[in-house]
Write a protein that binds this DNA or RNA. Structure first.
Lengths: 157, 157
DNA sequence: CCAGATTATTTCAACCTTGAAATTTTATGC
DNA sequence: GCATAAAATTTCAAGGTTGAAATAATCTGG
């Protein structure tokens, strides 16, 4: 009963976590908004398309649609639409996998790989600039904290 | 010239920031996805609606549409749609401001305030649970880092 | 006073996103 | 072998999101 009361009365510990979450979300939105605008201006593309191309770039042999959605933490139907648009842009191709007609393997075209290389270089510079005020030490500490958070999450789900 | 080369060759410093950003984004997506699902299941609502109600709850006298979009870091048009749906849910009202017929003041109804109180209590518990593995000290340090990031950003923009 | 600038908001098209249902193909138990 | 389950993907409706254009009201300099 004490525990229940403690929880309902919202002790400092939960307020701290709440404040952390709100600030983390705000920081993420600020950076995302900036990236969205720059990708649009400089490369006439969107953040979701960039994310998909980035995932595909790490797997030159290609990925299944379901690999993509799992990796990007978005739904299957979502990936379908984004890949459709990247295909009509000529940056991505779907190809059939031998022996399983349910699946299609998605990979970057040469044009896609080339375009991604240019975007990735700019993207890295933008991030360095936007996060410039985070000290080297803070960046590493925070980074390893967030890595632990994710590993922990994935091992539980 | 050295500086240019350094930047193009992506020295460790920019790689660290990039890694930090990617992990921060992933953590945010994990938590957001979980919150979205729980808000849907338990309160039949969405994260954007919750965000708007949360903003309005801090200003019982109401907010202008433009105050809302500025505070939430989203576009004007976006807020129009979300508020429309909250109005038809009966949780929010628009009222005219004396002396300026361009603006409308938006505030929670009694039903909205009551509903928000229930959601906020659950939300705080969920966040405490999801971020439980972040230590008290880390939470505070990270929190103040992110606060500094935001202040810095806002003073520059 | 009043034309033009500014401000607050809405509208709209295009895209992103989810979650559930539908489709198609492959695997499995009997 | 065949019915049924499982898997991979697409389709779809509802809602969220942006950025630009349209509306409408207020402010301002001359």
């Amino acid at each position: 009963m004490d525990a229940t009361l403690d929880t309902l009365e919202a002790p400092p510990a939960s307020k701290d976590r709440l404040r952390l979450w709100i600030r983390l979300l705000r920081a993420a939105r600020i950076v995302e908004g900036e990236l969205r605008e720059r990708l649009k201006t400089n490369f006439d593309t969107t953040l979701p398309r960039f994310d998909v191309m980035s995932a595909l770039n790490r797997q030159p042999e290609g990925m299944l649609m379901s690999d993509l959605s799992r990796f990007l933490l978005v739904s299957n139907g979502n990936v379908t639409g984004i890949v459709d648009r990247l295909v009509s842009d000529g940056f991505v191709v779907r190809s059939n996998r031998e022996g399983d007609r349910r699946t299609s393997i998605v990979r970057l075209t040469d044009a896609g790989a080339e375009r991604f290389a240019a975007m990735a270089a700019a993207h890295e510079i933008w991030i360095a600039e936007l996060l410039a005020e985070v000290s080297e030490g803070d960046a590493r500490k925070l980074s390893s904290m967030l890595k632990a958070f994710r590993s922990n999450w994935e091992s539980e789900h």
